[in-house]
Amino acid sequence: MRILATLTLAALLAACAGQPVEPRYYLLRGDVPLDNRQLTPASGYGLGAVVLAPYIDQQGLLLETTDGTIRPARQHLWAEPIIEGARIFLLQEISHSSGKDLLPLPAGGDAALINVRIDQFHGTSDGRAILIAYWWVSRDGEALAGYKFAQARQLDASGYDALARAQKALLTDLAREIAAIIPQ
């Protein structure tokens, strides 16, 4: 009996002694110039709600395989919750594109809010990244105008690094379109 217990413990220790796979983390941030300056808030505008489809809200990057299934990656993960990353990324890129600093909170009680809802945000096994989103401007709970953004971008290389870059580029394109409505 003692011999059997010793062999089992040895097997468990041998299993734990396997070499672990190190995951890769990707940070969803825009290319912000490194400078120090005073912020110039975008008057009359603010970023409202940023909502993701539930399947997007996962730590791993998402890949749609040829059989139509979605597989979250195990070794290629977002460095933070994607909902937070997406909100910060849009704030940075919209501010950068419009030349006005969009604040997380609206400036003024009667400011218009820019609301974003992302329905699809993943890569495909054939080397593309897809972003489908809807965004609209509202004031006092009443929608003033709405828009749709649906684009796919070809990866510049195989692998998750290229997929993360392509997804950032798609979010950048979305931010530029949003920034176009903010008066200079």
Partner: peptide, 16 residues
């Protein structure tokens, strides 16, 4: 949790 297993690697997005 007991037996060691090697997780399958993530499918890679491949550029055609």
């Amino acid at each position: 949790a007991i037996l060691p297993s090697r997780a399958p690697s993530d499918p890679e997005p491949e550029v055609k």
